[in-house]
Amino acid sequence: MTWNDKRIETWVGVMLRTGVMLAAAVVLAGGALYLAQNHGPRPDYEHFHGEPAHLMSLRGIGHGVATGDPRSIIMLGLLLLIATPVGRVVMCVVGFLFERDRLYVAVSSLVLVILLYSLFFHK
């Protein structure tokens, strides 16, 4: 089978589905642990006060997961989920490379650059 758009899309579909299920499993595990440890009243979501700094950096989440912190595990699942569409764009760059479609290698690379900028630098 040669490389064509249909084949790229099939691979992308499988990857997206797997990514979502993996992310949901991690979120579910973190959630179960969270509920096992927290029995108090619901947290205050009525007033916005952001999230603790350690949940807003990759290093902080990594450390939290290593120590079994439920919120960090949930955040890891959410980051996996956010990564699935990014993975889709990466697969399209590769797929268009195989198709030797230079125009669309450039288009999908541009989308990838915008996404990476937004994830790590956008303020």
Partner: peptide, 25 residues
Amino acid sequence: IGVTAAASAGLYWRSGYMAPSLVMP
């Protein structure tokens, strides 16, 4: 939709809009 939403996700995350215990359910 997924790719578009991912482009906002980074800023939401680093601005503390994603409360893990609320997002989970």
